[in-house]
Design a protein around this nucleic acid. Structure first.
Lengths: 188, 188
DNA sequence: TTTAAAATATACCATACGGTATAGTCATTG
DNA sequence: CAATGACTATACCGTATGGTATATTTTAAA
C-alpha cells in the first residue's frame, strides 16, 4: 500500500476513535510510519487530509445510496432499499460511519461539522426527493417532505448507532423492522 | 453574577459553538473577563470545568425528566409526558442541549463522550424502566425494552435536532405528532 | 545516461496549549 | 486591629501544536 493510502487509513482510525481535534499530525505520521513532510506533500494541511478522507469514502457511499434511493412507486419498498444500503455501508465501513455521525452532530463552528455539511445536505435532498415523489400518491405527505426526510435519516442513524454500540445487530430482519416502525409504529 | 457562574456561561457558549477541544482556556477567561488562576481556582482543570458544567445542567435536567418518566399505566400518555419534558428543557437550554447531543455522538475515546456517558446511561435506564413496565400490558414488547428505549431516545433527539437547526419548531402539536409517529407510524 | 520531477527525511519555526509559582487584594472574623 | 482564608492578577513553565525550509533520495522519462 502506498503512503497516501496508509495515511488515510491511520487518520481514519485515529479521528474516529479520538476525534479530529484531539489527534495531532505527529501522531498520525507516527502511526503511518512516515514523517510530516510526506503527509504535507500529499494533503497540504491537516484539514486537507480530513477533506480527502471524507471525499474518498463519501464517493463510495453515494455510489451505493443514490441508486437505492430511486423511487420505484412503492414508498415502503423504496425505504427498505435505502435502509438496506445504509446499514450495509455502515457495517462495511464502521470507522468511517462513526466519524461521519460524530461530525454531523459536532458543534456548528467546528471544522468537522463544516467538512461534512455538504455531504449531509446531499443526503437530505436525496431523501426529500423520495417523499416528494411519494406525496403524489399519499396526499397527507404534502409539504412535510423536509421533516419526513430528516426524521427518516435520524431513525436510520439511530439504529446504526445502536448497532455500532453493540446493543443490537444489523441483519435483514432489522431493516424490515426499522422501516416497518417508521411506517406503522411500534406495535403492529 | 459571580465569576464562577460567568465562567460556566462563557464556557458553555464556546464549547457548544466550537467544541471542547477547539476552545482554549485562554479564550474562555478572555470571554469571561478574568484570568486563568481564577478559572483554575474554581474548577481545577479544563476537564473539571467541563464536568462541573455538565453536572450543573444535568441536575436540572433530571429533576424535570425523572418525574415525567414515571409510568402511569398508559404508555402513550407517559411517552407524551416525557417528550414534552425533553422538548421543554432543550428549548430552554439550547446551548446545553447542543453540547449534550454533540458529546453523545462524539468519538468513544474523546473527553466529552466520557464526560457525558454516565448521564446518557441514566437516561437509557430511565426509558428502559418505562418499557419494562409497559411490557406487562403489551406482551409483544417483552425483551425489546433495551432497543425500544434507545430508539425512542433517538427519535426524541432527532426531532430536537430538527428544531435546533431551525427546520421546524417545537410546540405542543409537535410533541403529539412525534409520539404518535413513534407509536403508530408515519401515516395514521 | 543524463535530467527533471516526485517523494521523503532532518531539523527547525512561531505559536498556542494546559497549567502554575508567586504575590498580592479584599472582605470576614476573632 | 490582627489575622485568616477566599479570591484574583502578573508572569512564567514545559510541551505539543500545525506547518516548513532545505536537502536528499527515488523514480521515470528523454
Amino acid at each position: 500500500m502506498d503512503n497516501n493510502s496508509v495515511i488515510l487509513v491511520c487518520a481514519l482510525q485515529l479521528f474516529s476513535q479520538k476525534g479530529y481535534n484531539a489527534v495531532g499530525v505527529q501522531e498520525i505520521v507516527d502511526a503511518a510510519g512516515i514523517t510530516k513532510p510526506t503527509l504535507y506533500h500529499y494533503f497540504g494541511s491537516k484539514r486537507g487530509l480530513l477533506d480527502s478522507l471524507l471525499a474518498e469514502y463519501m464517493t463510495g457511499f453515494f455510489r451505493v445510496i443514490e441508486p437505492a434511493a430511486e423511487y420505484d412507486g412503492d414508498i415502503t419498498n423504496t425505504l427498505n432499499k435505502i435502509t438496506f444500503a445504509y446499514f450495509n455501508y455502515a457495517q462495511k465501513h464502521k470507522q468511517f460511519y462513526r466519524l461521519a455521525l460524530s461530525s454531523w452532530f459536532a458543534p456548528p463552528d467546528s471544522e468537522v461539522f463544516n467538512a461534512i455539511l455538504p455531504y449531509m445536505q446531499r443526503q437530505q435532498k436525496l431523501m426529500e426527493g423520495i417523499f416528494l415523489n411519494a406525496a403524489k400518491q399519499h396526499g397527507n405527505m404534502k409539504n412535510r417532505h423536509e421533516v419526513y426526510a430528516y426524521a427518516f435519516l435520524g431513525m436510520i442513524n439511530t439504529y446504526i448507532g445502536i448497532a455500532l454500540n453493540g446493543v443490537t445487530k444489523i441483519d435483514d430482519n432489522t431493516v424490515y423492522r426499522v422501516v416497518h416502525h417508521y411506517m406503522h409504529g411500534i406495535f403492529s
